[in-house]
Design a protein around this nucleic acid. Structure first.
Lengths: 334, 334
DNA sequence: CTGTTAGCGCATTCAA
DNA sequence: TTGAATGCGCTAACAG
């Protein structure tokens, strides 16, 4: 590895002069500067950022830690990156290990010290586990689980979004709406909140709530959704609407509906959550709850910057508003 | 920040003993060990990885550098992560800046020194630019552009895949097949190669090749594809098949076809490339060229490990085989 | 404008 | 089994 010493020797100057030329933190005479740059070029020197980071006590890097790199998280990451870069920092993505129940543990808390700040997407960590995470690093949590109050946190208006989507389908004439990917557990998490919104919409419309219409989905995957809905269809349980708790699940649903010859929205209305890009393009267009990714990204980065600037600021807990994007998979109110 | 010195003082031992307890590189007496661990716990010590990395001269971290975090790259990243982790290293994702023409330049070559190895997905970098990247770091290039011979490189059998997909649609009866997202430029890149495969299939079938059927798509996005195909439809140019150079483009195509009342595959057959998850679920299922992501990931990581173990090994240039996955958007041979 | 000294936190080497 | 000295590569602070 070529170091500054090598460059300094080659250019016949001190190491500090090389450092000053490269960082431009102090003026350097033109001829000296030229010799240094020539030496840098000749030797192919690249500054060792690890050393710089150690010296500086910071890395100018922010990490976004996600359960997986694809779908929802990839889209959010692309929103966050420019905001972080606008402040002169870099964004890197880290993935929590395959077993989400480990999350930070699997990643190693020490790794967080590699970054000036961390956006941690909490998929499966319990509040108690999270509470044991003792890091002085600025951390902002993202995600739909409850978290200890001392953390900054951005979550979505899950129940409200689910209520909007369900009420819209009720207004469009549906009377037996499945909540696909819903769960009956009472632990507070995304799927519970969205099921609750589905229930609220029913109560508000004076419709009965039937637990048989709460259909779990393995892995929250499209494949799991297709299989689960296929089984419902095979069972003969009558339904005329599907609220999928994520768009990934809605995608599996539309596949199962098509396979059974059920028309969307004529026979079955369908709505999802997340407003992924794909929902805009899958015919007939999937009505979806838009969580406003850019807004969420902006808020998360804002909280992180605030926290980095003032470690003692009181924690903020934001609930990002959502709105319904109506597309062809649902009918207008009748 | 709590350092090893703090822990050492608290435990009444030397810094080295703390280091040894934590790294387990040398045996430490049980009572001493217990005191150290107690001090670590009491002070909430976390090892400073930046310092460790500087000292060790390596970071045990591999970077995957991609143009964007979503879609194709997110899916590949999820394949690569476990392979890297299996060797005891971490994977992080970095994104090249918004302007792909900058790519590495935007990222800063120095950043590559933060990692023991780099998988660089080359979307837009010209071979000449790449040639100026003088890094002694182990680097493996991914992507469909030509690259300087000294780099290890994994690419897909783009032309072959495009030929397979096109020939399949010809066998299914299509005679006027658009290549959506194709380009006529002669610079070697993904879109050129896939257009070439489309052309080869036509020649092999004795069908004429008409440049009007090469339709560029803005940004290679679904929205761009929908608009581009919409214009073709409006223009009245007759066609009965669409080869989309990516599945993202195929998704836009299926949207435009549905909007125009064209049935898939009855009126128009459709095939894509990449075999994204979504292609399996969008009715009627999008026939797609499967680039075998797990295989590509495996080969890329293998090359990187080889390069990290032996910097002087001759460069390998792999072309990963592809296969066609037939779904409902195309017809069986007639 | 340029050089010297010192030290960021950790782990290798050598000594006890 | 434990400790002391040393330096990884860089830059702040202080000379000159």
């Amino acid at each position: 590895m070529v170091t500054m010493s090598d460059v300094a020797r080659e250019a016949g100057v001190s190491v500090m002069t090389v450092s000053n030329v490269l960082s431009e933190r102090r003026p350097v005479g033109a001829p000296t500067r030229a010799r240094v740059l020539a030496a840098v070029e000749a030797l192919g020197f690249e500054v060792n950022l690890t050393a710089r980071h150690l010296r500086a006590g910071r890395t100018d890097t922010v990490a976004l830690v996600v359960p997986s790199f694809h779908d929802y998280f990839g889209e959010v990451a692309d929103e966050i990156a420019p905001l972080v870069e606008a402040e002169g920092r870099h964004l890197v993505l880290e993935r929590t290990a395959a077993r989400p129940e480990q999350e930070i543990a699997s990643l190693g808390v020490a790794r967080l010290h590699l970054y000036d700040g961390v956006l941690l997407s909490v998929a499966a960590l319990e509040p108690e586990q999270l509470d044991r995470v003792r890091t002085t690093k600025p951390v902002v949590l993202l995600g739909e689980r409850d978290v200890p109050g001392r953390f900054d946190h951005v979550r979505l208006a899950n129940e409200e979004g689910a209520r909007l989507a369900t009420a819209h389908m009720i207004a469009g004439g549906s009377r037996r709406i499945l909540v696909l990917g819903g769960a009956l557990e009472t632990t507070h998490m995304m799927t519970t909140d969205r099921r609750a919104g589905w229930e609220t919409a029913h109560r508000e419309a004076g419709l009965p709530v039937d637990d048989r219409y709460v259909v779990p989905v393995a892995n929250y995957s499209s494949a799991g959704a297709r299989d689960a809905l296929g089984e419902v269809i095979a069972s003969g349980l009558p339904f005329d609407g599907v609220f999928a708790v994520t768009d990934v699940i809605a995608l599996g649903a539309i596949s199962a509906l098509a396979a059974s010859g059920l028309r969307v929205p004529d026979d079955v209305q369908l709505a999802g959550f997340d407003d992924l890009d794909v929902s805009n393009f899958v015919p007939p267009g999937i009505t979806s709850v838009d969580p406003n990714h850019p807004g969420v990204a902006r808020e998360a980065v804002r909280l992180l910057h605030r926290r980095m600037a003032d470690a003692g600021a009181p924690a903020e807990h934001l609930v990002a508003p959502v709105r319904l994007v109506v597309r062809g998979s649902t009918r207008a109110a009748r």
